[in-house]
Computed example of a mutant assay.
Amino acid sequence: MTLSSTQHAGTHEWTDTRLLYALEEVVEKELNRHLSVAKDWMPHTYVPWSDGRNFDGPLDGEPWAPDQSKVTDVGRIALVVNLLTEDNLPSYHHEIATLFGRDGAWGTWVHRWTAEEGRHGIVMRDYLLASRAVDPVELENFRMAHMSEGFESDNRHSMLHSVAYVAFQELATRISHRNTGHQSGDPVCDRMLARIATDENLHMIFYRNLLGAAFEIAPDLTMQAVRDVVVNFRMPGHGMPGFERAAARMAIGGIYNLRIHHDDVIQPVLRFLKVLQIDGLGPEGLKAQEELGLYMSGLDGEARKFDERLAARNARKAARAEA
């Protein structure tokens, strides 16, 4: 992508309001494209209702026990993390509605995105309870704790930072859901999460294309936003109870780790938008691009170390099993 010097001149004049206005037509175009390809689906059709039965409590049912679950240990951990992440939808809606507004194409997208995301929490919770995949009391306690904290973006409430963040985060969520399904040990769970992942991929495409348009009109500022987001990236569920321990288990289990983050999340977006090949940048944009390239090299190195540690761990585990 080649940009003329006039495109990055005067970037100090780009306020959030001006950027929202400048990108309105792109949002409308992407919204219409999204609506033309998105398929409505019914959450209740993905839930194994025939497996369900009453829990202990007012209905005097059967208490939950781990041996009632068809799901693998790592699958249960990831399902709880993924559902708790979806549960904070009211906070996410507040964040993007505050930044993007509720009027015009931006507002229409905000509400459509929220409605589509709402299905994910509905179907996941119904599946988990009907199939007795996780402890329902622990799940509810975690939900109350996590939602009571709410969610506040790391992105300094800059519109460009938020667009950059969701372009990567939607893909990260898609990958996490898809890999959780693969590792769950339950074909019903795998099918449900594949359907959710399809939505997340369409959301990623919307934000990725919007980010590409932002590079065209404000390349220096957009490059700085992408650098900041990539270098400081955290999943939105980072504040939930026990997240660090759960994330470690998910990393070892092949659901989400440094290698996946580098190869399947950050690199595809950067490569699609040719972020590291953009020229014609001003001093601040060029500095951000160089820093982004250096960070990606370092991230690849950290991912390589993780791969080596994981391979050694698996080798030790295999040796113990043979002995």
Rank of each mutant, 00 (worst) to 15 (best):
L3W: 07
T6N: 12
A9W: 13
G10V: 10
E13K: 09
Y21I: 11
A22I: 12
L23M: 10
E24A: 15
V26K: 11
K29A: 13
K29H: 12
E30H: 12
E30L: 10
L31T: 10
N32G: 04
L35Y: 02
L35T: 08
A38W: 05
H44V: 13
Y46P: 00
Y46D: 05
S50L: 06
D51G: 06
F55Q: 01
G57V: 11
W64C: 03
W64A: 08
A65R: 12
A65E: 10
Q68M: 14
Q68I: 06
V74D: 05
N82S: 10
E86P: 01
D87E: 15
P90D: 11
S91H: 03
Y92C: 04
H94L: 07
T98F: 05
L99G: 01
G101M: 09
G101L: 14
R102E: 12
D103F: 13
W106G: 03
G107E: 07
T108I: 05
T108C: 07
H111Y: 15
R112M: 08
H120T: 03
R125K: 15
L128N: 02
S131P: 02
V134A: 00
P136I: 13
P136Y: 09
E138C: 01
R143A: 13
M144S: 09
M144H: 09
S148L: 03
F151V: 02
E152W: 03
S158W: 14
F168W: 02
A172Q: 06
R174H: 08
T180C: 11
P187R: 11
R195W: 09
A197R: 06
A197G: 12
A197E: 06
A197N: 06
F206W: 04
R208C: 06
R208E: 13
R208P: 01
R208N: 05
N209D: 13
N209S: 12
L211Y: 03
A213D: 08
E216H: 10
I217P: 04
A218C: 10
P219G: 06
T222R: 09
M223Y: 02
V226W: 04
V226Q: 02
V230C: 08
G239V: 07
M240G: 00
P241G: 05
A247L: 07
R249Q: 14
M250Q: 05
G254E: 02
G254M: 01
I255T: 01
I255P: 00
I255Y: 00
Y256W: 04
R259G: 15
R259S: 15
D264I: 05
I266V: 12
I266L: 11
V269K: 00
L270K: 08
L281R: 03
P283E: 11
E284G: 07
G293S: 05
R304Y: 06
R309N: 10
R313D: 06
R313K: 11
N314K: 11
A318H: 06
E322M: 15
E322G: 09
E322Y: 14
A323I: 14
